[in-house]
Design a binder for these strands. Sequence first.
DNA 1: TATGAATGAGTCTTCATTCAT
DNA 2: CATGAATGAAGACTCATTCAT
Lengths: 245, 245, 245, 245
Amino acid sequence: MTEVIGGDRADARRNRAKMLSAAGDAFAEQGLDVPLVEIARRAGLGAGTVYRHFPTKQALLEAVFTQHLDELIASGERRAAQSAATEAFFGFLLDVVEKSKRREHLCDVVAADASWPRPMLTASVLRFRQVLTALLHAAQRAGSVRADIGPDDVVALTVGCVSMLASRRDRAAGHRLVQLTLDSLRPSAVVTEGQYFRDSPDIRRDTVTFCAECKAPLMVRPTGRPVRYCGAACRQRARRRRLAS
Amino acid sequence: MTEVIGGDRADARRNRAKMLSAAGDAFAEQGLDVPLVEIARRAGLGAGTVYRHFPTKQALLEAVFTQHLDELIASGERRAAQSAATEAFFGFLLDVVEKSKRREHLCDVVAADASWPRPMLTASVLRFRQVLTALLHAAQRAGSVRADIGPDDVVALTVGCVSMLASRRDRAAGHRLVQLTLDSLRPSAVVTEGQYFRDSPDIRRDTVTFCAECKAPLMVRPTGRPVRYCGAACRQRARRRRLAS
Amino acid sequence: MTEVIGGDRADARRNRAKMLSAAGDAFAEQGLDVPLVEIARRAGLGAGTVYRHFPTKQALLEAVFTQHLDELIASGERRAAQSAATEAFFGFLLDVVEKSKRREHLCDVVAADASWPRPMLTASVLRFRQVLTALLHAAQRAGSVRADIGPDDVVALTVGCVSMLASRRDRAAGHRLVQLTLDSLRPSAVVTEGQYFRDSPDIRRDTVTFCAECKAPLMVRPTGRPVRYCGAACRQRARRRRLAS
Amino acid sequence: MTEVIGGDRADARRNRAKMLSAAGDAFAEQGLDVPLVEIARRAGLGAGTVYRHFPTKQALLEAVFTQHLDELIASGERRAAQSAATEAFFGFLLDVVEKSKRREHLCDVVAADASWPRPMLTASVLRFRQVLTALLHAAQRAGSVRADIGPDDVVALTVGCVSMLASRRDRAAGHRLVQLTLDSLRPSAVVTEGQYFRDSPDIRRDTVTFCAECKAPLMVRPTGRPVRYCGAACRQRARRRRLAS
DNA sequence: TATGAATGAGTCTTCATTCAT
DNA sequence: CATGAATGAAGACTCATTCAT
């Protein structure tokens, strides 16, 4: 952790806050390559002052990231305390995605852990994982999230969602996509057999059947007469073919 | 398009290929900020040679991106010709994700179109969209993809999947996530009501009911006796609880 | 104008001066193509420091040029205040030529305005023109400079003189040439009719006499009483002098 | 001198001519810094071919310069043969200035002899000097050029004139300036006493008389018997003429 | 032999970091 | 202690010259 400078002096603390805020904005708007002097300028401070607080640009970046995580942690704890498990979990994920939207660059950092192993040891990172894990497990106990999902899956999913938001210009459409993606976590979601990927053999397959006409997956219906087609259209089409032959 | 240098000289063409390959690797491994001399070194060439072929680092990047797209286009056309609509579409998406895995940085380029508007006019980009759109529409006609999905949604979804793969270290787990996410496109996928996002009011809600036991969303069944549980397991569980009380 | 860096810090101002001086020397000795690091080396500073003060090599060049002009302006104003019109004007021109001697490259810049239109709007350029024009007009009113000469002619003439000085190795001989050339501006100078140049064909031959007062050339009048003065003003002035003595 | 390549092959000679022409244009339009490939492109040849003919860019430049001189030499010889001394001399100077107009960069080369001592040994340079000197002396013998002018003065003057033309946008005005300047060479021209340079503010006013033989200006001698000749040589020459008639 | 592709030294410019004011 | 000036290593890009085709 960065040694906090002048922890006892009000102005120093205010300066630190200004820097973090300015850095957050700057990274969001101009990417991680934004010059440090630009951050200092936004904060209304000198470059030297920034260095007094953060010995390295890297350190500043980590601090911004940590602050971001802390906000998410607070959000997660609030939701855990106030909502039922399912709402808490999904609400938290939406929070994470939404709040990270303007900070995709931070996600780059998370994604590229090879180049940045240290922050993974940070207290905030650990606490974030704890909160996430607790919410996840609660939701799983409540039956609203598939049992075969782990915290890492959730993190990866949210990272992906942030990317989606970033690449989908239409705001509303982006949100719908995120919704769609997060709902993949629900138990009803069907996982197509994973034969496409060349080298991932051991993916457990749910018991899926497919439309006899269009090969679309059919919902599981343990009882009753099994469906053969995904809908009226396919049934009709199959019929036509049968008659033709 | 970059003027191709030395189209008639075998060595020049070979060098161009070496550069593109080296650049692809370098961008993948070290990010878009990789020095050009590093790319030249990997290609076993001088920096000046790279500049002779690509007048700008940007131009080189675009060429790599274009080549990548061209591979995807070929893959898509092959699948469209050889497979049924559904397999073609989902197989194509998996191809896109898989092949882009080591090239997430290119996705950054796609994502950040504001800063890079020109390539969007490239022939390859247009062709890619055409292929994607054709596959999508075929799959939708076949009933295996939701009707309310457009090409931009699909692109964004794949971009997100690539991010997921990048952030999920476990290879198999990453693939499973991708599978899960892509399956969101299938008509059976349920979209939770989008009330979480502050400002996306107009998301059409499907009429969803939930499992009385586990709260999982249930498929719409307009006719017949409404289902109350998502499956046998839940029905049994509910029964047990009822007996216990 | 270049934003002046560190206006309040003594060392920064001293450094700025060192840079301008070093740049002036470097441009004079090695031409405009002198590497910026060479300038930095001469100034005893780092290249980055030069860039902090002048965002571009161009900007540095302009600053040197402006400083040069400012010196000339000061010289012109001093002379205008202290000397009679004729002495002031010719003295100024000699100053301009002499001081620009080691700075011919700057003249290149002036000459090549097509490639460098902006500095022409500079305050210093305008002021220089003002001073030059004022001195010229005063000298013309005093009768010591031909009436058909404009400021642009004078500038071009001095530019030419600088070139002469540069190409004439012998210092004294160079000065004599300049003297000769500048004296072309005096009314007594004879202009051969310009039949040589393609587009001014008819040359009248010169039996020339001069105004007894101001030495301006008098038109040939083969018959009748020869004129002695170029006009009423000179005749009157001569009369006054005769009466005074 | 550059070894002429393929002197026996017609195409090689044609190529050489194309190169020289292209180089002349390129230097004129884009300055001496024009890339060699640009010259090759203008000539419709490969860069390697240019190098086959001229081992160095410098060598090419010298060849262009030499060709330029050769044209001027031819012009001078033609005029010497066809015109009277005065017309020949001044016509030649106007030719030099006019033809060098688009080639000021070559003049830079002449001006900057420190950096380029070798071409001064070139046959063409020597021949040019010879022609110039002959024309000058003839004109001086004819009494139309001051006796105190040497070949170097004339060269410097023309270099200056080229600069004037370059810096005076108005074509006609430029030509008039050149005329004015070249006429400084005529004996009637008044040279103000050259004490201005460096720091001599009080310009003594000029009551100037001229040498009765060579028209050179005579120094003011307020008292005593007025001098009529600039020196013993002229006095003697005048005496001889008197005796002859 | 002509061509133009390859080379790499050299230039401008940026920016993280240090240090004098 | 805050400031912002100085630093110099590093990166993009150019071009004279060489050399393989």
